[in-house]
Design a protein around this nucleic acid. Structure first.
Length: 970
RNA sequence: GGAGCCUUAGCUCAGUUGGUAGAGCGUUUGAUUUACAUUCAAAAUGUCACAGGUUCGAGCCCUGUAGGCUCCACCA
C-alpha cells in the first residue's frame, strides 16, 4: 500500500462479490455509477461489497432450456475459471511463454467499443495459445492517463466549486488516488465481463511503486547518458490545461480565417514593405521581416530596417530561404516568440524573441497597451489601430491550419518555454533497425512503412508537463546550483550528492503519460529487477492495439525496450482499426453515437459481441458497428445451444445420454462402421481445423471465425445433423450409438475451435456435452475447455472420396428441392400446399454412381422430401421415370426424374433443359479452348490443368445427360 | 506538399500463393405434430469504381484517372 492507501492486489481481490452482486445481473454505465455516488464523497469504495459467495458457482445440471440465455450462462463461468487458476500461468520451463500485455485503459471513462475490440482480439490469441499448451500470460493494467486523469478529477472537484489550486497539490493527489481506487476495480470487472482471460494477480497500475521506480530508473539512465536535457524551446502550450504538450498531442484543424496584408514603413522613409499574416496580433512581438533571398520584388530591401507599427521599434529585413515566394506578398513578419518556423529563422539570424503571452494566453506587459487582452480581442484591436493608420492593406478569406489540444480542443499557443526533452535520434536508430531487419513485424504490413516514415523524421520529445497528476520528474536542484537525477523514492532524497546540502528542490513538473506507457512491456514484469517473470515472459510476442497510437505508444515502447532491455519488447505489432457507427462516423460523446459495449453484451451476450467484433473486419481496417450483425451472432449462440441440446438430451434416445457420460474425450467409432455422411463430416471437420489454424497463424481471425460459423451452422447443423436423424430414430442400436459418437466428436472439436471467440457459450456447451454430472458441483479439478487441447490439424483433404461422394449427394438433394420449389411456385393456387407437403417418388439414372446412391436412399429421401419406397435408382433411367409428366434434372452424370410436370408447362421444362444444355456446351467450349491453348498447357500448374480436365469431363457428362432427357421428352 | 487505405449484390462486408465471385441483413416464395421461428428450404439481384498494361488467364499484380477516408508535414 502506498501513502495514498492504494494497493492494487487488495483492490482487485474484492472484485468477485461485485461481479455477482451487481455487474453480472446488470451492468451499470459510467453515468449510472456516478449517479449512485451523487451524494457520496469521492473516494468511497462501497461499490465493492465484501466477498460472500464461493469463488466457483457451478452450472445447474439437468435439462437444457429451450432457448439460450446468455445472461445466465455468462454470469456463471468467469469466477470459476479465475478461481481455478487457468489465467495464471506458471513459469514452466517445459512450456513456451506466450505473452500479451494489455494496452492499459485510462482510468477516466467508461469502456468503449475500442476496448472491447482490442480485448476480444487479444483474448482470442491468448485463449488459442493457452489451448495449444503455451504458458499464456495476458497481463492487464491501468493507465493514470496524465492530462486526462487530472481533468476528470478537476471536473469532480468542480462539482464542489473547487479548483485544484484551492486545495493544493498534496490534497489534489489524495483525490486523484481516491478516484483510481474507486474506478480500477470497476473497470477490471468490465474486462471480466468481456471474458478477458487476464491474470489479475499480475495486474499493474502505471503509478504503482514498481512501475514508478522503473520510470525514475529510466529517466536517470537517459539523463546521465545525456539523452534527456532541459532547454528553452518553442513548444505547444494549452492555455486551458496550462501545460506544454508534445507535437503528437497537437490536433491540426483546418479553420477558416483571414489573411491580412500589412504595410510596414521602412525606417529610412524610402518606402515600405508589405507582409501577409494570419495572426496580426503577434506583430507586437515581431523582431524581423523576412523575404526569400532570390525574390526580385524585395531585393533592394534586404538589409534595411523597417519600423514596426504600433510599437515604433525598428526591425531588420532579412533574407531566408525558408520563405515561399509564391505565398502572400513574399514577405513575412517574423515572430520568434510565437511561431515555430519564425523561431527557427530567429535562431538562424540571431534575432531576439519577445514573449507576448501569459500562460492563460492573455497578452502580457510586452504587448504594451494591449496587455490583458485575449488573443481574439487583441487581434481586433491591433487591426483597428492599423486600419486607422492606413497600414491595413488587404483582408482576404484564407483557410489555415490551427493547432488544437488533443484532449480539450482548446486552441494551442506556440510559445517559448523551458522544458525537458528526450534527445530521440539515438533511441530511434535502433528501433528503425529492428523493423528493417525483421526483429519486429507489423500486421498488416503496410504499417511498417508508416512507422519507418515517422521514425525517420522524428523530433526531440517534450516530456515535461505542468501538471500535478503523474510521475514527478526525478530531478533536484540544490541551493548551490547542483542538478541531479535520482531513481530512489522521492521521499528518501534528502541531500545533494555533490555538496551534501539538504536545501534541495524537486522539479515541480510531471512526465508525459506516454513516457511511462513506453516502458509498459517490461515494467509490468518487474523490471528493473531481474524478476523470474521478466526472465520467463519477456520479450513478449504480440502487441495488439489501435493504429491511432502507433506513434504515441508502439514506437516509444520499441525505442525504450531496446534502450533499456536490449531487446525488442514484442516481435509482432498487430494493429486494429477504429470502430465506427453504422453510418461510418467516428464514435464520440458529442455526436451521441457511442455504443456502450457492456450494454451490447447485456442485450446480445458477450459471446455475440466478441464474435461480431472479431469477424466484422480485417486487420488495420476500420469497421462499422452494426446491430443487425450482432443479432445474427446472438442467433448463432442459440443455434449452437440447440444443436448441443439435441445431441445431449433430445429425441428420446437413452443411448445418447449414457454414452455422453461414459467418456470425457469423444472417440470416433471404428472406420468400418462409419457411414458416408460420417466420413464426410469428419473430413470437413479436419479441413476446418487446418484452415482455422492457418488463418489464425496469419492473424486472420475474422476469416477463421467465419469458417467456423459456416461449418457449424451450414455443414454440421443443416446437413450432417439432419442426416443423423435417420440412424438416431432407427432401430439399430449400434448405428444410433455410432452416430451419437460422431455427433459428439464433431461438436466437441467445433466448440474447441470456437472457444477463443465465444468463451462462455462454448464452455457451457462443452460441459453439458461431456457429461457434467447433473446437479452436482464441479469438482475443483474439473477440466475446462479453457485448457482443453487445441485440435491439431491433419493434412487435407482427410477423406477426398467422402467429400466428393457426399458432395454429389448434396447436389442432387439441392437440385430436387429446387425443382420442387419451382414447381410449387408454378402450380395453380389450390394445389400449392398439397404439392409442398406431399412426399413424391423419384427415379434416378445414376451411371457410375449407381452403387453409391443406392446406399444413400435414406438420406436422399429424408433431405429431399422423397417417398422412401418410391425411390428407384439404376444405371439407366427406370421405366417409371420415362413416363409422361416427369420433370427431369441433371446433376453431374446423374439424371433425376420427378413427377412434377403434370402441374407445369412441358415447354417450360424443355426450355430450361435446353438452356442448361447451352450453358454446359459453353463451358465445354471454354475449357476445351483452354486445354487446347499451348501456352496454358505449358505454363499452368499441373493441378490447375487437372482441375480443368475434371471440369470438362463433368460438363460433358452433364451435357450428355441433358441431351438424353431432351430426347426422351419428345 | 508527401504517404497510405477504401471503391465487390439493395445495405454491411469477406474474398492471402492470379484459374470467370461469397456471407449476413434485407427482399420474394414455400414449410409449423420440428433440436432451434433466435428455424428450415428455395429464388432473385454483380460490366468486382473507370481506363490502360503484364499474363494463356486479373476482383486479386503494375500504371494512370475519378470519388471517399486517414495519417504525416513549420506556406506566414
Amino acid at each position: 500500500m502506498n501513502r495514498y492507501g492504494f494497493d492494487m492486489q487488495a483492490l482487485l481481490a474484492q472484485r468477485g462479490a461485485t461481479l455477482r452482486s451487481s455487474l453480472a445481473a446488470r451492468l451499470y454505465t459510467w453515468d449510472e455509477i456516478a449517479e449512485q455516488d451523487e451524494e457520496e464523497s469521492i473516494g468511497m469504495t462501497e461499490m465493492i461489497e465484501p466477498a460472500a459467495a464461493p469463488a466457483a458457482t457451478p452450472p445447474p445440471g439437468g435439462e437444457m432450456a429451450k432457448a439460450y440465455s446468455h445472461a445466465e450462462v455468462e454470469s456463471r463461468w468467469y469466477d470459476w475459471w479465475e478461481a481455478q487458476g487457468y489465467f495464471r500461468p506458471e513459469r514452466d520451463p517445459a512450456k513456451t511463454a506466450f505473452t500479451i500485455i494489455m494496452p492499459p485503459p485510462n482510468v477516466t471513462g467508461e469502456l468503449h467499443l475500442g476496448h472491447a475490440l482490442t480485448t476480444t482480439i487479444e483474448d482470442i490469441m491468448i485463449r488459442w495459445k493457452r489451448m495449444q499448451g503455451y504458458s499464456a500470460l495476458f497481463l492487464p493494467g491501468f493507465d493514470h492517463a496524465g492530462i486526462a486523469g487530472q481533468y476528470v478529477v478537476e471536473k469532480e472537484l468542480a462539482r464542489s466549486d473547487l479548483t485544484r489550486h484551492d486545495i493544493g497539490r498534496e490534497q489534489f493527489l489524495e483525490h486523484a488516488w481516491a478516484w483510481m481506487r474507486k474506478y480500477i476495480p470497476i473497470i477490471s470487472n468490465q474486462f471480466r465481463r468481456l471474458g478477458a482471460s487476464c491474470d489479475w494477480s499480475r495486474a499493474r497500475f502505471t503509478m504503482d511503486a514498481g512501475p514508478a521506480r522503473a520510470v525514475r530508473t529510466v529517466f536517470k539512465h537517459l539523463y546521465d547518458k545525456g539523452l534527456i536535457y532541459q532547454g528553452e524551446r518553442i513548444i505547444n502550450w494549452c492555455p486551458r490545461c496550462m501545460t506544454s504538450l508534445s507535437d503528437l498531442e497537437v490536433e491540426s484543424e483546418e479553420t477558416p480565417g483571414s489573411l491580412w496584408t500589412l504595410r510596414y514603413p521602412l525606417a529610412d522613409g524610402s518606402g515600405s514593405i508589405l507582409v501577409a499574416t494570419t495572426r496580426p496580433e503577434t506583430m507586437l512581438g515581431d523582431t524581423a521581416v523576412a523575404v526569400h533571398p532570390d525574390d526580385p520584388r524585395w531585393q533592394g530591401m534586404i538589409g534595411k530596417q523597417a519600423t514596426l507599427p504600433l510599437t515604433g521599434r525598428t526591425v531588420p529585413i532579412i533574407a531566408d530561404a525558408a520563405i515561399e515566394q509564391g505565398f502572400g506578398t513574399g514577405a513575412v513578419k517574423i515572430t520568434p516568440g510565437h511561431d515555430p518556423l519564425d523561431f527557427e529563422i530567429g535562431r538562424r539570424h540571431g534575432l531576439p524573441a519577445i514573449n507576448l503571452m501569459n500562460t492563460d494566453s492573455t497578452l502580457n506587459a510586452n504587448a504594451g497597451t494591449y496587455a490583458g487582452l485575449k488573443p481574439s480581442a487583441a487581434r481586433a484591436a491591433v487591426l483597428e489601430a492599423l486600419a486607422a493608420q492606413g497600414l491595413l492593406i488587404k483582408t482576404e478569406p484564407h483557410t489555415h491550419v490551427v493547432p488544437h489540444c488533443e484532449r480539450c480542443n482548446t486552441i494551442l499557443e506556440p510559445l517559448i518555454s523551458k522544458q525537458w526533452f528526450v534527445r530521440i535520434q539515438p533511441l530511434a536508430d535502433p528501433a528503425i533497425a529492428a523493423a528493417q531487419d525483421g526483429r519486429v513485424g507489423f500486421v498488416p504490413d503496410r504499417f511498417s512503412k508508416v512507422y519507418m516514415h515517422w521514425m525517420s523524421n522524428i523530433r526531440d520529445w517534450n516530456i515535461s508537463r505542468q501538471l500535478w497528476w503523474g510521475h514527478r520528474i526525478p530531478v533536484w536542484t540544490c541551493a548551490n546550483g547542483h542538478e541531479f537525477a535520482g531513481a530512489d523514492e522521492p521521499e528518501t532524497v534528502t541531500a545533494c550528492p555533490t555538496c551534501g546540502t539538504a536545501e534541495i528542490r524537486q522539479d515541480p513538473d510531471v512526465l508525459d503519460t506516454w513516457f511511462s506507457s513506453g516502458l509498459w512491456p517490461f515494467t509490468t514484469l518487474g523490471w528493473p529487477d531481474q524478476t523470474p517473470d521478466f526472465d520467463y515472459f519477456y520479450p513478449t510476442q504480440v502487441m495488439e492495439t489501435g493504429y491511432d497510437i502507433l506513434f504515441f505508444w508502439v514506437a516509444r515502447m520499441l525505442m525504450q525496450g531496446l534502450e533499456n532491455t536490449g531487446q525488442v519488447p514484442f516481435s509482432t505489432v498487430y494493429l486494429h482499426g477504429l470502430v465506427r457507427d453504422e453510418t461510418g462516423r467516428k464514435m464520440s460523446k458529442s455526436l451521441g453515437n457511442t455504443v456502450n459495449p457492456l450494454q451490447a453484451a447485456d442485450r446480445y451476450g458477450t459471446d455475440a459481441l466478441r464474435f461480431n467484433l472479431a469477424t466484422g473486419s480485417t486487420p488495420g481496417n476500420d469497421m462499422k458497428f452494426s446491430e443487425s450483425r450482432l443479432e445474427g451472432m446472438q442467433r448463432f449462440a442459440n443455434k449452437l445451444w440447440n444443436a448441443t441440446r439435441f445431441i445431449v438430451f433430445e429425441s428420446g434416445s437413452a443411448t445418447r445420454r449414457v454414452s455422453a457420460e461414459a467418456s470425457r474425450t469423444p472417440a470416433l467409432p471404428p472406420a468400418e462402421r462409419l457411414t458416408l455422411a460420417d466420413r464426410w463430416i469428419i473430413s470437413r471437420q479436419h479441413a476446418l481445423a487446418g484452415d482455422v489454424q492457418r488463418l489464425m497463424e496469419d492473424y486472420n481471425f475474422g476469416e477463421a471465425g467465419r469458417l467456423i460459423y459456416d461449418f457449424m451452422w451450414g455443414e454440421f447443423c443443416d446437413w450432417y445433423l439432419e442426416c443423423a436423424k435417420g440412424p438416431l430414430n432407427g432401430s439399430d442400436a449400434q448405428a444410433t450409438a455410432d452416430t451419437v459418437a460422431v455427433l459428439r466428436w464433431t461438436l466437441e472439436r467445433g466448440l474447441r475451435l470456437l472457444h477463443p471467440f465465444m468463451p462462455f457459450v462454448t464452455e457451457e456447451l462443452w460441459q453439458n456435452l461431456l457429461g457434467r454430472p447433473a446437479d452436482a458441483d464441479l469438482p475443483a479439478n474439473a477440466q475446462s475447455i479453457c485448457v482443453a487441447a487445441w485440435p491439431r490439424p491433419v493434412d487435407a483433404p482427410y477423406d477426398a472420396a467422402a467429400e466428393r461422394e457426399f458432395g454429389l449427394l448434396m447436389a442432387i438433394i439441392t437440385a430436387i428441392r429446387n425443382a420442387r420449389a419451382e414447381a410449387i411456385k408454378d402450380a395453380p393456387e389450390g394445389q400449392k400446399a398439397d404439392l409442398a407437403r406431399k412426399r413424391i417418388p423419384a427415379y434416378l439414372a445414376a451411371g457410375e454412381s449407381v452403387a453409391l446412391l443406392q446406399g444413400q436412399t435414406a438420406i436422399l429421401a429424408r433431405l429431399a422430401g422423397l417417398e422412401p419406397g418410391g425411390l428407384e435408382i439404376a444405371a439407366a433411367l427406370p421405366a417409371a421415370g420415362s413416363a409422361p409428366g416427369m420433370t427431369t434434372l441433371v446433376v453431374e452424370d446423374v439424371a433425376v426424374a420427378l413427377p412434377l410436370s403434370a402441374l407445369v408447362d412441358r415447354d417450360a421444362v424443355r426450355n430450361r433443359l435446353a438452356s442448361e444444355a447451352t450453358q454446359a456446351g459453353d463451358e465445354i467450349a471454354r475449357v476445351e479452348a483452354m486445354l487446347a491453348n499451348e501456352a496454358f498447357m505449358s505454363k499452368a500448374r499441373p493441378a490447375v490443368v487437372a482441375a480443368q480436365h475434371t471440369k470438362l469431363a463433368a460438363a460433358r457428362d452433364r451435357l450428355a445427360a441433358l441431351q438424353a432427357r431432351l430426347a426422351s421428352l419428345d
